[in-house]
């Protein structure tokens, strides 16, 4: 469905140091630096897959999505989406895709969302009967029946985002790019959006690429993740396998009926946290069984669970690792 080979996107950015003198100088002589937003990544995505793009801010996620949706011309490399070259922006291609951006909106600000829906119906040439069916499905799934007749500016962020999503799906895109669709939403609304996105993917078999800062989004939606860092691909595979690789240790969470000496806990494994009757231990995977048995026999345990490290931690560790590698590589070799 999607094929990316050696994608590069470099920008020329004008740079100048702060201060009036530098500002005046830059009027005459400008210095440019090249920003390598994406620096040679390759991957394939099958029809109907749900893939999460992960990476710190400025990693190149949004740039990649924009190249895939035809908004940016790649500096180098080959990209095809369902047989189309995105940058040509052919009508047939544009009718198959959609990009939803959590931080930008396409809804007409002063008019009710229903007007934007109608406009999109005309732009995408959606037959009237199909439009009615789709829109009533969307209204039901997203529970926006009474929202779409209010002017957009009167809606809350969450309500607006639901209507944004509906506006984006009127033409039933086969490929959906979601750039932080849940940003700024409360936990309940995030969950609603996730459920809806998953249902859409399953119902229409749409291919889905998602970027998000909320790891819960990725964990709930994407069996496969692609990690991009500083424009380079640093991981492509299952989410579970990624966690295994970066943080093979497990976490044993103990709820204790009475206070326990810190030394007794640390004899079992590394203590991550220990407060008000709950202790979290980090232990090697192969030691989990032994630790659990010992904990149950030696400590006043009320409840015990074994978990993976939180995704946020896994990610920050992964990014820290690659940063350390980069710094090491760029340091001059002592003579």
């Amino acid at each position: 469905m999607i094929s990316v080979r050696g994608l590069r996107k470099h920008y020329q950015v004008h740079q100048r140091p702060p201060g009036l003198k530098a500002a005046l100088r830059s009027l005459v002589h400008r210095s440019y630096t090249t920003v390598k937003a994406v620096d040679g990544i390759s991957f394939d995505i099958r029809p109907g897959e749900r893939v999460g793009f992960l990476g710190p801010n400025g990693a190149g996620k949004t740039t990649t999505l924009k190249v895939l949706s035809g908004l940016l011309h790649p500096s180098d490399g080959e990209v095809t989406v369902d047989g189309h070259v995105p940058q040509k922006r052919e009508e047939a291609f544009l009718k198959k895709i959609m990009l939803v951006m959590g931080q930008k909106q396409q809804l007409l600000w002063d008019l009710p969302p229903a007007e934007t829906f109608e406009l999109n119906r005309a732009i995408y040439d959606v037959p009237q009967a199909q439009y009615k069916k789709t829109i009533s499905d969307l209204i039901e799934l997203l529970e926006i029946g009474d929202l779409i007749v209010k002017p957009t500016r009167q809606l809350s962020l969450g309500e607006r985002m639901k209507c944004e999503l509906a506006a984006a799906l009127i033409h039933q895109p086969r490929v959906l790019f979601l750039d932080e669709p849940t940003i700024g939403l409360d936990v309940a609304m995030q969950a609603t959006m996730r459920t809806f996105i998953k249902e859409y993917n399953e119902k229409y078999g749409a291919t889905l690429i998602l970027t998000s800062h909320y790891m819960d989004d990725v964990a709930a939606l994407c069996p496969r993740v692609i990690v991009i860092d500083k424009g380079l691909l640093s991981y492509d595979g299952g989410l579970d396998a990624l966690v295994q690789r970066v943080r093979p240790e497990k976490r044993v969470v103990l709820r204790l009926s009475e206070e326990v000496d810190a030394a007794r806990l640390s004899s079992l494994g590394r203590v991550v946290t220990h407060e008000s009757g709950t202790a979290v231990l980090q232990v090697q995977q192969e030691a989990v069984n032994a630790t659990v048995t010992r904990a149950l026999s030696t400590l006043p345990v009320m409840d015990l669970t074994v978990e993976n490290a939180p995704l946020e931690e896994v990610m920050s560790e992964l990014f820290a690792e690659s940063k350390a590698r980069r710094t090491a590589a760029s340091e001059p070799v002592p003579a």
């Binding site: 924009k66 949706s69 035809g70 908004l71 922006r89 009508e91 047939a92 544009l94 009718k95 895709i97 959609m98 990009l99 951006m101 930008k104 396409q106 732009i123 995408y124 040439d125």
Partner: peptide, 8 residues
């Protein structure tokens, strides 16, 4: 971006 994404 949204304008450029439209097939028109």
């Amino acid at each position: 971006d949204f304008v450029l994404l439209k097939p028109a």
